[in-house]
Amino acid sequence: MKKITIIAGARPNFMKIAPIIHALKEAQDKGIKIDYRLIHTGQHYDEKMSGSFFEQLQIPEPHVNLAAGGGTQAEQTAAIMLKFEKELLENPANLVLVVGDVTSTMACAIVAQKLHTKVAHVEAGIRSNDWSMPEEINRLLTDAITNYYFTTSELANQNLLASGANPETIFYVGNTMIDTLLKQRPRFRKPAFWDELGLQDKSYMVMTLHRPANVDEEANLKTLIDEIILHSAPYDLVFPVHPRTAKVLERLKIADKRLHLVEPMGYLEFNYLVERAMAVVTDSGGITEETTVMGIPCMTLRDNTERPETITIGTNELLGTDPKAIRPAMEKLLSGNWKVGSIPPLWDGATAPRIIENILGLNEL
């Protein structure tokens, strides 16, 4: 019996592991001797991660929540390592599978290796080359001690080879976020405010901003949003706002009849909104993947990206963090000259079965 411990620490991680759990269950149904234990490190406390969250993704709730959130980066890393070490000693596994680039990914990979347990990294090899981002440090450290790399792009493969990874341990499988997107797309549902705001297809744009470079510097945030409002007319702007950002906006007195501040919503509701939007303005990485697959124009307010295929192949453009970049991008969009993207190879909804097939083929486990 092969036993896999799967690690998730934040909402996006669960979107990435959901299809892996579905593929594991399919293998079990075929009589294959494989089992898993899902660990939520509790890195991010999220009041919306209730039973309904797991129901939306059609996965069971985690076997355990380590409740290791809060504190500084170092405190959080230490808390996750202490609690996960105890968990793994009590419930040994043949393989610890980590996803993405959050602190939990790095911390649990370190614990596993020190307990002589093999590590697999899903979404390995992506790089922003921006060491000011905690996520980049997490990626570099995790990949430095990973045994098996599951990658989303050819560029990720090249990054790993350049860092000295054994080519026989790199498996180019695609993107599990897209597995989830394509599986759940028929189930997308209207957010509660859709009718209240009188929204219609292509009548609005979606905004998401959360990175410190954009939201912590209040004057810059005000200029950014003012520029977006000014140059996006006549479209409505729907902005799901984190409570911390909402307080800043309130303080800055940013208001406009076309700007609608809404609470963060579930996966099915948010993607219903994105799928019908004229465009998305964001500083997120994952959303750029989803907009690429759904063919929605996307403007990324960052100076770099770890997902360049969303630009070279998809519908995304990297604008940087200078508010002056908003106007020409909006003019390009509203004049109908935004590029028509395509979908990167292997982003086909079948990534998770490829991952499980490769894991089952590892004789050393």
Rank of each mutant, 00 (worst) to 15 (best):
M49T: 12
R276T: 06
P186H: 14
K30A: 04
K324A: 07
M133A: 08
V281F: 12
H22D: 09
A124L: 07
D29N: 12
L346R: 07
K25M: 01
L333G: 00
P240D: 01
D236W: 12
F193T: 05
Q158P: 10
K83L: 12
L182M: 15
L273Y: 15
G349T: 09
I355P: 00
V262N: 11
K114H: 13
E364Q: 08
G70S: 14
A93C: 09
F84S: 03
G341R: 00
M278T: 05
L224F: 15
K257E: 15
M205A: 13
A74M: 07
L181V: 11
G361D: 07
R244Y: 10
K25C: 09
N94D: 15
V340Y: 15
N13M: 12
G42C: 10
V241G: 03
F193R: 09
T351A: 10
E218Y: 11
A78P: 01
L259Q: 09
S284W: 07
V119D: 05
K25A: 02
G286W: 15
I355E: 03
G295F: 05
N220V: 02
G100Y: 10
L57H: 02
Y148R: 05
Y45I: 12
Q43R: 06
L249W: 10
I229C: 09
I126Q: 08
V274E: 07
M177G: 03
V340N: 13
F188K: 05
L346K: 06
E290N: 04
N91F: 15
T105L: 11
T321F: 05
G314L: 03
P12Y: 14
T180C: 13
A255L: 13
D256K: 07
P134S: 11
D29W: 09
G51C: 09
E26A: 10
L115D: 08
Q43L: 09
L181D: 05
D322Q: 10
R276V: 02
A67H: 12
R139Y: 14
N337L: 11
W194D: 02
S153Y: 06
Q158N: 15
I296T: 06
I110L: 03
G70L: 01
V238D: 03
E250P: 04
A352Y: 05
R189F: 11
N129E: 15
V173G: 06
L273M: 10
